[in-house]
Write a protein that binds this DNA or RNA. Sequence first.
DNA 1: TATGAATGAGCGTTCATTCAT
DNA 2: CATGAATGAACGCTCATTCAT
Lengths: 210, 210, 210, 210
Amino acid sequence: MARPADRNAKVDLLAAAEVVFAEHGLDQARVDDITARAGKSKGAFYLHFESKEDAFREIIESLLARLHACVREQADAPLAASPSEYLRTWHAKDLEIFEFFWQNRRLMRLLFEGGRSADYAYLTDAFAERSRAQMEPQFRAAVAAGLLRDDFDVNIAIRLVSGAYEGVARDVIRLDTKPDLAHITRQLQRFILTGLASPMLRTGVLENDR
Amino acid sequence: MARPADRNAKVDLLAAAEVVFAEHGLDQARVDDITARAGKSKGAFYLHFESKEDAFREIIESLLARLHACVREQADAPLAASPSEYLRTWHAKDLEIFEFFWQNRRLMRLLFEGGRSADYAYLTDAFAERSRAQMEPQFRAAVAAGLLRDDFDVNIAIRLVSGAYEGVARDVIRLDTKPDLAHITRQLQRFILTGLASPMLRTGVLENDR
Amino acid sequence: MARPADRNAKVDLLAAAEVVFAEHGLDQARVDDITARAGKSKGAFYLHFESKEDAFREIIESLLARLHACVREQADAPLAASPSEYLRTWHAKDLEIFEFFWQNRRLMRLLFEGGRSADYAYLTDAFAERSRAQMEPQFRAAVAAGLLRDDFDVNIAIRLVSGAYEGVARDVIRLDTKPDLAHITRQLQRFILTGLASPMLRTGVLENDR
Amino acid sequence: MARPADRNAKVDLLAAAEVVFAEHGLDQARVDDITARAGKSKGAFYLHFESKEDAFREIIESLLARLHACVREQADAPLAASPSEYLRTWHAKDLEIFEFFWQNRRLMRLLFEGGRSADYAYLTDAFAERSRAQMEPQFRAAVAAGLLRDDFDVNIAIRLVSGAYEGVARDVIRLDTKPDLAHITRQLQRFILTGLASPMLRTGVLENDR
DNA sequence: TATGAATGAGCGTTCATTCAT
DNA sequence: CATGAATGAACGCTCATTCAT
């Protein structure tokens, strides 16, 4: 037999903690605020979590787990046969992930801001690193398949691309109303693929390169 | 005639505060740590700063002032005559700014991480916003001059480009050894200008666009 | 179901605070002293009071409330029919109030000494002012009833009488052993009514007045 | 040769200290305030005084010395020959002392309020005690001379009289504009000598006494 | 003698965590 | 399991006093 009261208590506390952490960050969040918002006692909090940090960790870990599940789900799709199929798949994946960002924007902001605590500042980098790591094999595969140019320093290219993704993601999650994610991600894809150079300037670019 | 002010006192304190804030963030930095590191007394700290936050603000404001001075200096250069001149100028500007990032990487990280305190989380966004604002007129000028394509949503393009810059900047400032900034910025420029699409894929891209 | 509130906690803290404030005044009283004396933790103090000053205020306000209740109770009695009844009633009232002073002599001293803090120095005057205000209607009624002389400047007479009361009260509350309050108040009453002049001098006094 | 600069410095500091102590009491007065008001350095303060308390003591002692000089001057006058001469002399003495109170009202308030510090709360009582002590021989002499009634408990009578004086003094020194001190002291004297009872009540009072 | 920057002990208050019921 | 009063370590800030010049 489950003990629903118990489960609900933890769920309530987690929900409240999520809000309070998202608003105040780890350091400035007070356990009192969390329990008051959850309508639970302080004792209940420590019944379910070892410490304030533990609750924070649990929330962040859950977020990361769901995020990675979402990303992996996208990543596991096979390289499409045709170029246009490839683009369609890619775009669908991006949209899926940006939808996740939007759904979890409060927590994603907290993540991007390192939990607003020195102790979790590493989260920001860790997330970026992980994104890059996740991106690399797909990128290399695309290069190998002749879909992407091979005259780039792949590491740097990845860095740039993931930077663009992260930058856009940061923008999206701080909006108040939901933007047209499909449009944004399509532009992002197009930007990555075609660049901004006008034909006239393209000559200059080639000149400029050795 | 009085015991002369230790002209270095404030400088020492600021230097120590910079280190401590960079390491622990605003909330977890202890005034004791700062003064101990500076070899000064606690009283000395409050002789020069109204409060812990005041010292933090002073450090951040100084960083932002120097940063904006650096950016403005770059921005004020006129649009170059020839495309290749334009590219050279652009690259030089970027390099200058990335040098600044590298020189001040400890503080830039703190800035990017919102002071690691809920109270200054806005810094992250404020900086991104400002960067975008600074970029916009230059971008539009380049489009008007036929240097950049005009079939992009400019706002989104700026968002993407500034995202790429920010992402790369975040990467750079967390390295332990100085990377080849000229290389990175050149790749960044080239990436922005030419994109990643292979000729074969380029067709797909065009197809994909309505 | 919870660890039940130590119903005595606040009472203990107030009792301890009373002693410590009475001994050291507001400024020099240390919260540590209060909690140590109460056998409570520092946290417990802030569980019941907003601040040190808040506890002080509560103590003083309670004293004033009880004092005014006592005074009002006396004041509400009607003017007696006969002179001797009037005197008896008056004396009984005084005795009641002086008993209150004696019972609360530690706090009354603190009150008379303005909480031994610049912030509450006004208490001394406020109390005197209030006493005078309370006395005035009774005084005027007694004059109207022909019980008291009408050839005095009433305001000054009240000032003198309340001064005498206050002076005697200040004396009484700093004694170590309880004096014969009935005797003192009777003498005080007699003094107010008849003065000290010997018959021989009385003539001179009356001459002296215009 | 005197060192006028030095002397002036101390005088300036004392004057400033007087104002600051009178306003904030001992505990809440800051040495900084005193030196700033005096236009001197903190070093100068400690050149002339051992400590903040020392300066306070010096000010209070000076006040008491001048006060006692004034009182003694009055006290040393011989008992006058005739009753009316006695009354005139007494009144003149009182007026002199009340003039002193008025001249030094800021400091007298501080004195009456125990320096607004637990450490000097005793001043209030010490002053009252001393006043009583000073009054006693004169009182007894007057009784012996048949000028004052002898059917009073002398100690209590003194207490009452000095209480009345103290009460009136407290009133006077907190006024903003100088009152008619001669009038007040005359009324005070008359009150002490004759009391307030109407002829009608006097009968009852005498009955009431055993 | 005079200066005023520097010192550091001291204290009010907060809040994560514990524990008696 | 649940409660919430109690605990006490921690830390920001003040200000009397010292001392190098």
